[in-house]
């Protein structure tokens, strides 16, 4: 279980990115964070694994206070939290294999890893992770040779190597075709339902939110302006959606999810 208590983030330039945000994520939940660009979604996700240090508040994961963790402790916490990104954040010049293996970095001897030496099982594990996302044939290619959808799958495989108990996904489909969005979110849903990994994901399309989320929070100017569960989301109207996103927002259809592989 993840508890966020009174989380506040003020950037050095004075921007209030998160303002007293509190919520909980039960194990096995698929939490979707919605909100405009700049509403604090990315900051919130990055505070959870402390890529960004929060100014105030607490994040407690399975009883352990992440905000108070020492560097070595923090690394142990981070390796249990997989993360995927809008722009995939792969190392372009390295091979797909190396990118996936880098998910294991938190577990292995740092000095051995500098020489690119991995424990015997790691390569097999990496291939298994690639197989889960269906791109074993791309393992030896350079990461920048892959298409956008394939690259996000490498991102997922890298996160799987961490053997995570939670996945953070920062707009994982925002730079992909709508059709591919279902593929990628499908993998996350599969992880969520089969391996009981809780997922915290920021999304833009109401269709996708309605299709995948088990719980939703809406952020606006760093504040939580909407909370809803599966039922609430199903009933969510364009009016409510607009309220979160502001008056200018238009509902965009993200394509039929039935076409997505499942």
């Amino acid at each position: 279980m993840l508890e966020i208590k009174n989380l506040t983030k003020i950037y050095p330039d004075g921007t209030l990115a998160l303002d007293d945000v509190s919520f909980t994520v039960e194990d096995g939940e698929f939490l979707v964070v919605i909100g405009l660009s700049g509403s604090g979604k990315s900051t919130l996700l990055r505070c959870i694994n402390r890529l960004i240090d929060p100014t105030k508040g607490q994040i407690i994961m399975d009883g352990q206070d992440i905000t108070a963790a020492e560097p070595s402790e923090l690394r142990r916490i981070r390796r249990k939290i997989g993360m995927i990104f809008q722009h995939f954040n792969l190392v372009d010049r390295s091979s797909v294999m190396t990118n996936v293996l880098s998910g294991k970095l938190g577990y292995i001897n740092p000095w051995a890893s500098l020489l690119h030496k991995y424990p015997p099982g790691a390569k097999k594990e990496a291939m298994a992770a690639l197989e889960k996302v269906g791109i074993t044939d791309q393992a030896t290619k350079r990461a920048d040779e892959l298409s956008g959808g394939q690259r996000q799958r490498v991102g997922i495989a890298r996160a799987l190597m961490q053997n995570p108990s939670m996945m953070l996904a920062d707009e994982p489909v925002a730079s992909l075709d709508p059709v591919l969005a279902h593929t990628i979110l499908g993998y996350l849903e599969q992880l969520n339902s089969e391996s009981h990994i809780s997922v915290i994901c920021s999304l833009h399309y109401l269709d996708l939110v309605q299709r995948y989320a088990t719980k939703v929070i809406g952020l606006r100017d760093g504040q939580v302006v909407y909370r809803g569960d599966r039922e609430d989301i199903r009933k969510m109207t364009d009016g409510q959606f607009k309220e979160i996103y502001g008056e200018e927002a238009v509902r965009v259809n993200a394509g039929e999810f039935d076409q997505g592989e499942k």
């Binding site: 990055r46 694994n49 890529l51 690394r75 142990r76 916490i77 981070r78 390796r79 939290i81 997989g82 993360m83 990104f85 722009h87 995939f88 954040n89 792969l90 190392v91 372009d92 010049r93 390295s94 190396t98 880098s102 998910g103 294991k104 970095l105 938190g106 577990y107 740092p110 890893s113 500098l114 991102g155 890298r158 996160a159 190597m161 961490q162 953070l168």
Partner: peptide, 26 residues
């Protein structure tokens, strides 16, 4: 981006430099 991603896996500073910075610098 990659620096962030490698940090998120629980890698330490040296590993982050080796895996995320050096390949970009070469």
């Amino acid at each position: 981006g990659p620096i962030e991603a490698i940090q998120a896996t629980g890698a330490n500073k040296l590993q982050t430099i080796m895996y995320a910075v050096v390949p970009q610098m070469i």
